[in-house]
Design a protein around this nucleic acid. Structure first.
Length: 575
DNA sequence: GCGCACTTGGC
DNA sequence: CCAAGTGCG
């Protein structure tokens, strides 16, 4: 992978003391505090409320601006509203998408995610064409001038209105604020709406009126809020209406229809794209089939050609579905126990609302069940975590600016050890469960959630390497990379995050291995050196055996490493 | 201000 | 079983 982010350092940031190869971007405390004091989401919403000073003039189209997190046609609020508005205004609807490689560099988007985006756009273009709606995909290289590029595109089609779903990352919000400002200046009415989450950011607060920073109380209010008005929070957005067939004879539309979805973006060529297309097929239909199978069947099977080593390890003797058994089995990385919908949720290929509605149908109930003693309830909680971490990001933008949520840990001393980091990144730490996890990510573009925690805890607490480097590596590998969830997970592992995980809770990777992979199938699937090792020694192979199999010895002793981590967290700044 | 909870973990 | 920490009701 090309080294990125080095030439694109924002002016407010300064490099950490780590060596160049281990450098991460960290905003100054002042810049971070300023962002927290005035979160850009508030500014965007304010701007939308103020409306146009003059009503928009008559134009030729209504436009829906599709972005990386809402790649679907059904149950899409901005698209539904755009369609309704087009009908009311008696003009046709167009959809456009702007590829922005500088943003992908700055946000460590993985080639797999970009490739997945393009594959989905291709499916969407065909589906929209059946409704006589063009999807225009173009590329703009400079992120700084993207807002004016969007406006000039809207002017070129003489749009009256532009609709989009809100993205809650800082840069995206600042971009959209600029788009709104320019749109209004040019007589185009912008509408940016909440769509990503079940409950929009800002709606929930503690009795003190502050945003939640702990999950359990958040979850309680999240659930009761949803259940107080399920018709609203779980409402399915209307599907867009077809344009009249006459648009096909209009030259502007012909041009839009004729534009093609590129097969790759320069700098983001996906070397294992063919494999990804099999493991993670594009399109809402495939996502829905995955959801259906998770809720109703015991195994993913090999439908749609989806195949990976763990399919064979799926225990098909179970009578109930994976969703029903999720509570008992979810931490098993050696079985097919999870929905694996994260890439589809991250890219909005299926809506979180649809997932929750499907649980209501499954249980035959009207209120959302999120109790921790049922499988379906636990799975709903995972969608709760997705909402929670995005709420945290929206309320405390500094977490995405390289700052720890807990500033008291800002000066924890990290090891600057390129060899250790490289060993972790390539899955050669000598701890089998960690290496299996990393290699799963590097081959599938995805990792079991428990494995994410184990790998993250090992990097931060055992190798004592800056969590931001791990955060970046995950984003660069994963097909499901979501800033809020990834950052939340890493800060949780590093004990710097919102949910107060005391720093002294350090995973023992060997005990974790026995719990997450009791059969050893997970390790054997992804660590070929250990493929012939059966029995408990697979979790911590004796040095002699490791040497014989060409498997690395552990980089460090867990107990010593644990003590070092406790020392450094106890007195941030100390060695 | 007190007590409960913690995707509690470790011993 | 205990707990080196702490948000929240």
């Amino acid at each position: 992978m090309v080294k990125r982010a080095l030439s694109l350092e924002p002016p407010h940031s300064k490099r950490s003391r780590l060596e160049p190869s281990l450098s991460v971007l960290v905003a100054s405390p002042e810049a971070a505090a300023a962002a927290d004091a005035c979160p850009p989401l508030g500014e965007l919403l304010q701007m939308l409320e103020n409306g146009l000073t003059e009503p928009p003039e008559k134009g030729d189209v209504v436009a829906y601006w599709m972005r990386m997190e809402d790649l679907r046609i059904c149950d899409n609020r901005a698209l539904a509203q755009a369609s309704a508005s087009a009908i009311k205004d008696h003009v046709p609807l167009i959809v456009f998408f702007v590829l922005s490689p500088e943003d992908y560099v700055a946000h460590d988007r993985s080639p797999r995610r970009i490739d997945f985006t393009l594959r989905n756009l291709s499916v969407l273009k065909d589906s929209l064409a059946k409704l006589n709606i063009p999807l225009h995909v173009s590329l703009h290289s400079q992120r700084r001038t993207l807002p004016s590029y969007v406006i000039s595109f809207l002017q070129s089609v003489n749009a009256i209105r532009v609709f989009a779903n809100i993205e809650y990352e800082v840069d995206e919000l600042r971009r959209d604020i600029n788009v709104c400002r320019l749109a209004k200046d040019n007589g185009i009415l912008p509408s940016f709406v909440h769509d990503k989450l079940i409950v929009e950011p800002g709606l929930l607060s503690t009795k003190q009126g502050k945003p939640y920073t702990v999950y359990s109380p958040f979850q309680r209010q999240w659930l009761s809020t949803i259940n107080s008005d399920t018709d609203n929070f779980l409402a399915e957005g209307a599907s867009p209406k077809a344009n009249p067939p006459s648009v096909k004879s209009c030259p502007v539309f012909q041009k839009l229809f004729a534009s093609e979805v590129p097969s790759y973006v320069e700098g983001f060529q996906c070397p294992d794209g063919d494999k990804m297309a099999v493991v993670w097929p594009a399109g809402t239909d495939n996502a829905r089939e995955m959801l259906r199978r998770f809720l109703h069947t015991k195994s993913r099977g090999t439908h749609l050609g989806i195949a990976d080593p763990l399919d064979e390890a799926a225990d098909i003797s179970e009578k109930q579905s994976r969703a029903i058994l999720y509570k008992e089995n979810r931490d098993r990385a050696d079985k097919d126990t999870t929905s694996r919908l994260s890439p589809y949720l991250a890219a909005g290929i299926i809506s979180a609302r649809e997932c929750i509605r499907a649980t209501l149908d499954l249980l035959g109930v009207k209120k959302v069940q999120a109790n921790r003693d049922s499988g379906v309830g636990m799975w709903v909680q995972e969608i709760g975590w997705r909402d929670f971490y995005t709420h945290v990001l929206a309320a405390f933008p500094r977490v995405s600016m390289g700052r720890p949520f807990q500033e008291k840990y800002a000066n924890v001393q990290w090891e600057s050890n390129p060899e250790h980091f490289e060993a972790w990144r390539s899955g050669r730490t000598g701890v089998p469960i960690v290496d299996a996890a990393i290699r799963q990510a590097n081959t599938m573009g995805w990792m079991h959630n428990r494995a994410r925690m184990i790998a993250a805890m090992y990097l931060t607490k055992d190798l004592m390497i800056d969590w931001r480097l791990g955060e970046r590596h995950f984003m660069q590998q994963f097909i499901d990379g979501d800033l809020a969830s990834n950052n939340g997970g890493w800060q949780w592992s590093a004990s710097t995050g919102t949910d107060p995980q005391p720093y002294f809770r350090v995973f023992n990777p060997y005990l974790q291995s026995e719990k997450a992979d009791p059969s050893g199938d997970y390790i054997r699937s992804f660590v070929p050196e250990l493929r012939k090792v059966f029995g408990p020694e697979i979790h911590n192979p004796p040095a002699k055996l490791a040497d014989k199999l060409g498997y690395p010895r552990p980089l460090i002793d867990h107990k010593e490493a644990r003590d070092r981590a406790l020392r450094r967290y106890k007195n941030p700044g100390s060695k």
